Amino acid sequence: MTRGRPSTPVGTFGEIGTTQLDSGKWLANVTVRLPSGKGKRIRRTGKSEAEAKRRVKAAAVDATGTEDTDLLKGSSTVNQLIDVWLNQYDGAKSSIDQYRSTARVHVAPAVGSLRLVELTTPKLERFFRSLTRSRWQASRTLLMNACKYAVRMGVMDHNPAAETTPAPASDFKARALTPVELATFRRMVRHYADQAKSFGVQLPELVEVLAGTGARISDVCVLRWSDVAGNRVTITDVKGGGRKRTVTIPPTTVAALERQRKVTFGWSPYVFTHGSAEQVRRQQPQQWLRWARVVWADRERVFGPVEPDVSWVTFHVFRRSMATWLAGQVSIETATLQLGHLQAATTEGHYIDRTGMVPDATAVLGKILGSGTEMAE
């Protein structure tokens, strides 16, 4: 059992002591616990007691390699750091909500009470490895960003999360719609709309806008009529902090918007609405799609070709499909611009279905390989 006074936490200092010297000046002294764990005695003098204290405190902070701010200090906890960082983070609300959820559910119980001076790479490595791949990735991203902020503020002298092992690569493979699957999905949502009441009748047109723009469902939900001009649509990237891009849409999407215009134009500023002329919320189209799957599964079957299974198709699949179609027929750079990604690696690594983007290269191969008649002779 440990006896005596508890040791000063690493990277902090104890109570400042002062003494007035015979010369009339004041001497302030304090013991600092360095990041190495060793103690160091620091002394400074001043014309007044307050000046001596200020000088010795500044020297103690320099010795630990960090600086205190109005909101954070080396003795602050990881939970406090995350709160301060998120309060100044200017990302999308959905991203902030996800970060707070990760912090509350995973980070806080494991390392949230640690002081910043106690946060080390080995501790974080053990914590990350105790999680599943997706939770590992989410927690590491959160702590890397928060600690990066602390380093910029001078509260930490390095980023311990940046030195940890990244989460294992996902075995996820993007899947794009085939033409047959796309046709079946269109029939499914139209079949639902023919029987739907109220605002669910908008689902087929909403699907056409998703298919023709490659936008996220959250971006389509905030689409206004002022964003639509003929065959050009301006997309507001909700997840990307409100960045805008203008895309050219195909005739099927133009026709869908014209049909939708008759429903909401002049009544609501939004292309897709749900009561009181307000924008449709993301959860509502997702509910329509769930109902559409149920109605489609219960439909009366007729004799004819077997319909492919489209129960796996979500709204985000149209984004991956757009990336795959453009990368296969035009270029990855075009797909990146269409989706609004900042880096082509994001599009290539997470959105392109490699099985669905192989172009017809027989003309090129024919020139290289020849007719093959010399093999037959």
Rank of each mutant, 00 (worst) to 15 (best):
R5E: 09
R33A: 07
G39Q: 14
K40N: 08
E51I: 03
V56Q: 02
V56Y: 01
V61T: 13
L71Y: 08
S75H: 06
L81R: 05
Y89H: 15
R104T: 14
R104K: 15
V105G: 02
P109G: 01
K123H: 07
L131W: 04
R133P: 04
R135Q: 13
Q137S: 15
R140G: 00
L142I: 05
M144W: 07
A150I: 04
D157R: 14
E163W: 12
P168K: 14
S170P: 06
P179D: 07
A183C: 08
H191E: 12
A193M: 05
K197T: 14
G200T: 06
E205T: 09
I217T: 02
V222D: 12
S226Q: 13
D227M: 04
V233F: 09
G241K: 04
T246Y: 00
T253H: 01
A255F: 07
L257F: 06
V263Y: 09
F265P: 05
G266K: 10
W267V: 15
W267N: 14
E278K: 12
R282S: 13
Q283T: 14
R299S: 01
R299G: 09
F303N: 14
V310T: 10
Q329P: 00
L339T: 09
T346L: 11
T347N: 03
E348P: 00
Y351Q: 07
V358F: 07
D360E: 10
D360N: 14
T362P: 01
K367Q: 11
I368D: 02
T373F: 09
